[in-house]
Amino acid sequence: MQKPEYFTVHNAEAFKEQSVAKSYHLRPTYPAETFTILVELMRGESQHVLDVGSGTGNVARHLVELVERVDAVDFSQAMIEQGKQLPNGQHPGLHWLYGRVEDIALDPPYALVTAGASLHWMDWNVVMPRFRELLVPGGYLAVVSVDAQPDPWSSLSDVLRSYRTDSKDYKYNMLEELERHGLFRKVGERRTAPVSLVQSLDDYIESYHSRSGFSRERMGQERADEFDREAKKLLLQSYPTGEIPLQVTGGVVWGYPAPHDA
């Protein structure tokens, strides 16, 4: 199956860059209720979870407090090293694993496989059957997302298009595509209650440099600084205090990685 052209190896490689890893913690992250939902989805006697494309551990570092072990896999050493410096990054139950989940050696069985903002970068034809093999019988793949409202960037669409270093012009639903191609069977979906977050304009803008199209290494420092100044000037028109009040929710969609006959 074909993914949108945006999800190339070249664009994924941006997450190996130091500036992306350093800015990643500034993205709005999952409310605590998200992890309660994930624990409820675990199957079998195993208390081990596999978190794929873990990045700096936004899922793994919180979930490890509620389970026996989390194996957190990422192909970016920069992301892993940054994650180790964040809260719970050195938790004894958290095992950081550097490599591609498509072929890295793992220690199954897992009661749950989790994926945050990462699954779209992977080779679905390889990883979905592998997840099924790694899971306990009847085990779920849970895809976790985060949403923050309002979306200040909707007023900056022209600025984003003019500064980004890649093209991102697509409309598709990843999980619907996986289901259509027989690689995933959705079982359920839940969304958390909203939690409040107030973020400074500087931090909010900096969080954009944790995205593949706005890596400082790829933009170049001068152009990245220009982007920051222009974005802040426009955002101050709507947020003159220099702070953005956000309502953050987490979403979890779970189902069977395919092929699955159950």
Results as ranks from 00 to 15, higher is better:
residue 203 D to T: 08
residue 140 Y to E: 08
residue 210 S to T: 09
residue 197 L to R: 11
residue 189 E to T: 09
residue 117 A to W: 14
residue 139 G to Q: 07
residue 184 F to N: 01
residue 177 E to S: 12
residue 134 L to R: 04
residue 137 P to K: 04
residue 186 K to M: 11
residue 189 E to L: 08
residue 157 S to Y: 11
residue 154 S to G: 06
residue 201 L to I: 09
residue 136 V to Q: 09
residue 227 F to A: 05
residue 209 H to V: 10
residue 130 R to G: 03
residue 227 F to I: 00
residue 215 S to H: 07
residue 148 A to P: 01
residue 144 V to M: 00
residue 157 S to M: 13
residue 183 L to Q: 06
residue 235 L to R: 06
residue 132 R to F: 04
residue 211 R to T: 14
residue 109 P to W: 03
residue 236 L to V: 09
residue 160 L to C: 09
residue 134 L to H: 07
residue 229 R to T: 13
residue 165 T to G: 08
residue 118 S to I: 02
residue 123 D to A: 07
residue 229 R to F: 10
residue 115 A to D: 05
residue 184 F to S: 00
residue 179 E to N: 02
residue 117 A to H: 14
residue 164 R to M: 15
residue 171 K to L: 13
residue 154 S to R: 12
residue 222 E to K: 10
residue 145 S to V: 00
residue 232 K to L: 01
residue 111 A to P: 09
residue 166 D to F: 13
residue 122 M to C: 02
residue 220 G to M: 04
residue 130 R to L: 09
residue 175 L to H: 06
residue 177 E to Q: 14
residue 145 S to D: 14
residue 170 Y to F: 15
residue 215 S to T: 06
residue 110 Y to D: 05
residue 154 S to T: 12
residue 203 D to C: 02
residue 220 G to Q: 04
residue 161 R to V: 14
residue 124 W to M: 09
residue 234 L to R: 15
residue 238 S to F: 13
residue 208 Y to K: 13
residue 221 Q to A: 14
residue 206 E to D: 15
residue 194 P to S: 07
residue 110 Y to N: 01
residue 119 L to N: 07
residue 226 E to I: 00
residue 159 V to I: 15
residue 108 P to Q: 08
residue 226 E to S: 12
residue 139 G to K: 03
residue 150 P to S: 02
residue 173 N to W: 13
residue 205 I to S: 08
residue 173 N to L: 11
residue 143 V to I: 11
residue 197 L to E: 14
residue 232 K to P: 09
residue 223 R to E: 10
residue 192 T to M: 05
residue 153 W to G: 00
residue 216 R to Y: 06
residue 236 L to Y: 12
residue 183 L to W: 01
residue 136 V to Y: 08
residue 205 I to M: 04
residue 197 L to P: 03
residue 218 R to L: 07
residue 220 G to I: 05
residue 111 A to C: 08
residue 169 D to E: 15
residue 144 V to Y: 03
residue 208 Y to F: 15
residue 113 V to E: 01
residue 138 G to N: 04
residue 124 W to I: 00
residue 213 G to K: 08
residue 122 M to Y: 01
residue 166 D to H: 13
residue 182 G to T: 03
residue 188 G to C: 01
residue 150 P to E: 01
residue 213 G to T: 05
residue 156 L to N: 06
residue 160 L to D: 12
residue 135 L to M: 09
residue 202 D to F: 07
residue 185 R to W: 07
residue 191 R to N: 06
residue 133 E to S: 15
residue 173 N to H: 14
residue 149 Q to R: 11
residue 173 N to R: 15
residue 234 L to S: 10
residue 189 E to Q: 10
residue 173 N to P: 03
residue 114 T to I: 03
residue 217 E to Y: 03
residue 118 S to G: 13
residue 205 I to H: 03
residue 214 F to T: 05
residue 201 L to Q: 08
residue 212 S to M: 06
residue 208 Y to I: 10
residue 186 K to F: 01
residue 203 D to W: 07
residue 162 S to N: 12
residue 177 E to T: 10
